[in-house]
Amino acid sequence: MNSLKELYNYREMLFSLVRKDLRTRYKGSVLGFLWTFLNPLLQLCVYTIVFSVILRSDVPKYYIHLFVALVPWLFFATSIQGSSASIIGSKDLIKKIYFPRIIIPISVVNAAFMNMLFTMIVVFFALIFSGIGFSWYILLLPIIMILEYLLALGLSFIFSALDVYFRDLEHILGIVIMVWMYLTPVLYGIDMIPDNFKPIFKINPMTPIVVAFRDILYYKQMPDFSNMWIILAWSIALIVIGYVVFEKLQKKFAEEL
């Protein structure tokens, strides 16, 4: 409770770090913040051309099938990779003033989450123009997004703290994230996985998240509630473990930096 109270007291600093991240991401570019919408829109155009003309898939409107799963994955990957180097990147700030160090990885995840929210605007327009549309199950989407946020936050606590002591972790994570993506049904549907391998894929906490996004936005059906419990269990476990690891390792951040 004391930690939560301290975070609340430093909420303005947290908001400031998030704003700084969002503003400096496209600083100096002509279009500036508009790239937040243009990037996913251009990606969608590329997927539409490639998978409608060149690499045709049996999945109807495969570009939407891919896009709705890629959005949560990009948030997850950006949060993990961005937070892993966040403490080292903020070493000058850490050495100068006191503040709860855990604010740094939180700000990275929050900025990535805000970017995902902006990208969802493009997703919604894509669903309308593709003719897929919406169903009332879309009301469940914020629950999935919050659970994924907690999952990413817990892992960000762990990797941001470990990277201070093990600097190669940032580079190793790049490879791990790439492999992790192929082990998550982003580029393919869950139904394409052989039955004997499905238990392995279900261990992956990102599998039920991606499947839930696709169920709600592409198939317009109720996501599997048993998967929701899996996501919740992973999220709570990693938040607790991540917080404990971060609090233990942060005591010697100044010495290591």
Results as ranks from 00 to 15, higher is better:
residue 254 A to E: 07
residue 110 N to F: 03
residue 95 K to W: 05
residue 101 R to E: 04
residue 178 M to T: 15
residue 82 G to K: 00
residue 65 H to G: 09
residue 174 G to V: 10
residue 7 L to I: 06
residue 239 I to D: 07
residue 60 P to Y: 03
residue 79 S to D: 01
residue 147 L to Q: 00
residue 218 Y to T: 03
residue 213 F to D: 13
residue 100 P to L: 11
residue 197 F to H: 05
residue 171 H to R: 15
residue 31 L to P: 12
residue 116 M to T: 13
residue 203 I to T: 12
residue 49 I to R: 02
residue 129 F to R: 06
residue 175 I to N: 08
residue 198 K to T: 12
residue 106 I to R: 02
residue 221 Q to E: 14
residue 251 K to R: 06
residue 252 K to H: 13
residue 138 I to Y: 06
residue 44 L to T: 12
residue 214 R to A: 06
residue 103 I to C: 00
residue 105 P to A: 10
residue 117 L to I: 12
residue 18 V to A: 02
residue 196 N to E: 15
residue 226 S to K: 13
residue 103 I to E: 00
residue 239 I to Q: 13
residue 204 N to E: 15
residue 47 Y to M: 04
residue 56 R to Y: 10
residue 67 F to Y: 05
residue 252 K to N: 15
residue 198 K to P: 10
residue 228 M to H: 04
residue 224 D to E: 05
residue 132 I to M: 02
residue 237 A to G: 13
residue 97 I to H: 01
residue 54 I to M: 01
residue 57 S to R: 04
residue 117 L to A: 10
residue 33 F to N: 14
residue 145 M to V: 04
residue 97 I to P: 01
residue 17 L to T: 01
residue 115 N to D: 12
residue 150 L to M: 03
residue 85 A to R: 14
residue 240 V to C: 04
residue 42 L to P: 03
residue 257 L to Y: 05
residue 189 G to T: 08
residue 125 F to I: 04
residue 134 F to G: 01
residue 142 P to S: 06
residue 201 F to C: 03
residue 218 Y to D: 10
residue 92 D to S: 01
residue 189 G to H: 08
residue 54 I to G: 12
residue 117 L to K: 00
residue 44 L to S: 11
residue 139 L to P: 05
residue 138 I to C: 03
residue 53 V to W: 15
residue 80 I to T: 13
residue 44 L to R: 02
residue 53 V to Q: 10
residue 143 I to H: 00
residue 210 V to I: 12
residue 73 W to T: 04
residue 177 I to Q: 04
residue 217 L to G: 10
residue 64 I to S: 00
residue 136 W to T: 15
residue 208 P to H: 15
residue 24 T to R: 15
residue 213 F to T: 09
residue 43 Q to M: 15
residue 100 P to N: 06
residue 153 L to E: 07
residue 224 D to A: 13
residue 146 I to Y: 00
residue 47 Y to A: 03
residue 8 Y to V: 02
residue 86 S to W: 00
residue 120 M to N: 10
residue 80 I to S: 02
residue 212 A to T: 15
residue 150 L to D: 01
residue 110 N to H: 01
residue 50 V to G: 01
residue 113 F to D: 07
residue 227 N to M: 11
residue 37 F to N: 12
residue 255 E to M: 12
residue 202 K to A: 11
residue 256 E to V: 13
residue 85 A to W: 05
residue 87 I to T: 08
residue 195 D to P: 14
residue 85 A to M: 03
residue 10 Y to P: 00
residue 172 I to Q: 08
residue 250 Q to S: 04
residue 110 N to Y: 08
residue 59 V to W: 02
residue 125 F to T: 12
residue 114 M to W: 11
residue 12 E to S: 11
residue 244 V to Y: 14
residue 10 Y to I: 00
residue 197 F to K: 04
residue 129 F to M: 07
residue 208 P to Q: 12
residue 28 G to T: 08
residue 190 I to F: 14
residue 128 I to G: 11
residue 217 L to N: 10
residue 37 F to L: 14
residue 132 I to W: 01
residue 3 S to P: 08
residue 134 F to C: 09
residue 183 L to Q: 03
